[in-house]
Design a protein around this nucleic acid. Structure first.
Lengths: 316, 316
DNA sequence: CAACATATACTGATGTTGAGTATATGGTTT
DNA sequence: AAACCATATACTCAACATCAGTATATGTTG
């Protein structure tokens, strides 16, 4: 089995494609780098010249955005025939990555730009409480879909999934289920990719903006990963400027998690873990009492390895 | 950028290879399916006929082992030039998976067999406390390696990493750092893959058995993932027989985690989460008072979606 | 029948988390 | 200048989860 691998089975070669979810937080909003006027995630081919996959990704992302890419993490690899844009002669493997940066200068080139990622997933933003249209518009459509199931058991299963994923019928909202929610909508025929016929590029206020091929699924995967990760790894700081106030930090976490955070508890946790240190300066950007400016203590990465930091994400 | 992808850039096609970490627990020991007498993980090419990557994996794993594959999860994809077995003309992408089964009949075919995974990572088994050879043999070699660093700062960093990863100098042992530990040993030149010259296939009692190419790194990734996952997803049950006693369940968790579990707390957690239900029967396999037999409540998967179950893993 | 091995149940101490409230300190408004 | 407002910062308490130790029950084995 193992040795059968590299034997040039000519009929089975493929192309490998690298796709990036590049995230940033600006003005209290989570952003993602898109191309083609927001229709696609940036991507590029994996070339023989690249030492490794990550190297390849870094090279062309830095070419495109003109800034070094900090934190990078692999998301998922797939090669589903069904979800490809058009039935191609050659098989394509897509390897997706999550990268964290800071948005400052706008990226150059063809239709590239930073976009609020809730344009693509409006139902994911619960910072002002659950959006009304979940109960008003999404839930009814999901229930219709459930009702259309052939047998009773399947029907019950669909209702259950809808309730768990979207926090209906007394279930709590779980902000990490980004991918499951998207997949559910897709299955129910409510994601526009499913019906991208003449592709007018319309943006639905409740069902979100669609993307090419399965790029929206990849984006969902990236958001889900990031939402899970900020809770136990100090990755938010990759998205922050060099110095920041605790409130700014909190707002960033809230932007990513899509839900509000209990302020006193947030501060307690940050401080008792010694994740940040004072710079001495204060910020006078906002009205009210000036806030102390902090910087991330880079040392924690060395001290604790990859382990052990916690951020609270809870109800308002 | 995105549209540049599939344009037949002939020079950049690759082969895709699927590699599996198949885990099982038998006789209180964690096992992994290997081929070539324990030198490699089973692997097979991704073919154009396969609908998706997972489908491809399932197909040939089931061919090989003759049993359906239950839980499957993608691990990682890589294409590092440096770690390939021999510099090949064609570039190979390796996509690795973790699969959970039960071992009963031995797999057929060329040198395939189930092996205790601690043969490959002896330092990972802390069920009887930290193995003495960590302090006696591994730590000194790591310290030597640290001392050989060119400058003071690098030296301190290496010592720190060694301490964090191997639980030295007062740091707690963290069973999830399987990959980091292996990578550290590799970097320090203590993994035999690094010096596989005439490859005698020797098994080191402290530094473990080596494998082809980077298969041991993949195995480490799989173990790490599984150790993390059993704590918050009910995946252990994929490895259990249809009915089992609570002690058997506990022993399985301990086998995977490589450390002992507090018995009363373990049982409390299992029961209060209603993960299992009594079958009515009792087991008389072991001496002593017969234990009740339980089965996994499949319903929890539907009730809770992918979320929310906990298993305790702590000191003895 | 005694010794033993395993199963099962209970209890207290400690730590973590969620949530509410109070006070301090600057700028802004009248 | 006084009142006000917005933000920062500090403290308190209750609920809950976790860790760890100990005690009791119920079989088998010699």
């Amino acid at each position: 089995m193992a040795k059968a691998q590299a034997r040039g089975t000519v009929g089975n070669t493929v192309d490998a494609n690298l796709i990036a979810v590049l995230a940033a937080v600006t003005g209290g909003q989570p952003r993602v780098l898109t191309v083609h006027g927001g229709d696609a995630l940036p991507s590029g081919p994996f070339e023989h010249a690249h030492r490794s996959l990550q190297t390849g990704l870094r090279i062309w992302v830095e070419q495109q955005t003109g800034r070094p890419l900090g934190y990078v993490e692999q998301l998922y690899t797939f090669a589903d025939r069904d979800r490809a844009e058009e039935p191609a002669a050659r098989r394509v493997i897509s390897i997706s990555y999550l990268g964290l940066t800071r948005e400052d200068k706008p990226p150059d080139g063809q239709g590239a730009g930073w976009r609020n990622w809730y344009d693509y997933f409006p139902w994911e933003d619960h910072r002002a409480g659950p959006p009304r249209f979940i109960e008003d518009a999404i839930a009814p459509q999901l229930r219709d879909w459930a009702r259309s199931a052939p047998d009773r058991k399947l029907r019950a299963g669909r209702l259950q999934r809808a309730a768990i994923n979207f926090g209906l019928d007394g279930f709590d909202w779980n902000e990490e289920l980004v991918l499951q929610r998207y997949e559910l909508l897709y299955e129910a025929g409510l994601a526009h990719e499913a019906l991208r016929s003449q592709s007018t590029g319309e943006v639905s206020l409740t069902l979100g903006r669609a993307m090419t091929a399965d790029h929206r699924r990849i984006l969902a995967t990236g958001i889900a990963r990031l939402r899970a990760k900020i809770k136990y790894r100090p990755v938010v700081f990759e998205l922050m400027p060099a110095t920041f106030t605790l409130l700014q930090l909190q707002k960033s976490v809230e932007a990513l998690a899509g839900r509000d955070v209990h302020k006193p508890n947030f501060r307690r946790l940050i401080e008792q873990q010694e994740l940040v240190e004072e710079t001495g300066a204060t910020s006078t950007e906002a009205a009210g009492r000036p806030a102390k400016l902090f910087r991330f203590r880079q040392a924690v990465l060395a001290e604790r390895g990859t382990t052990g930091t916690r951020l609270p994400v809870s109800r308002a």
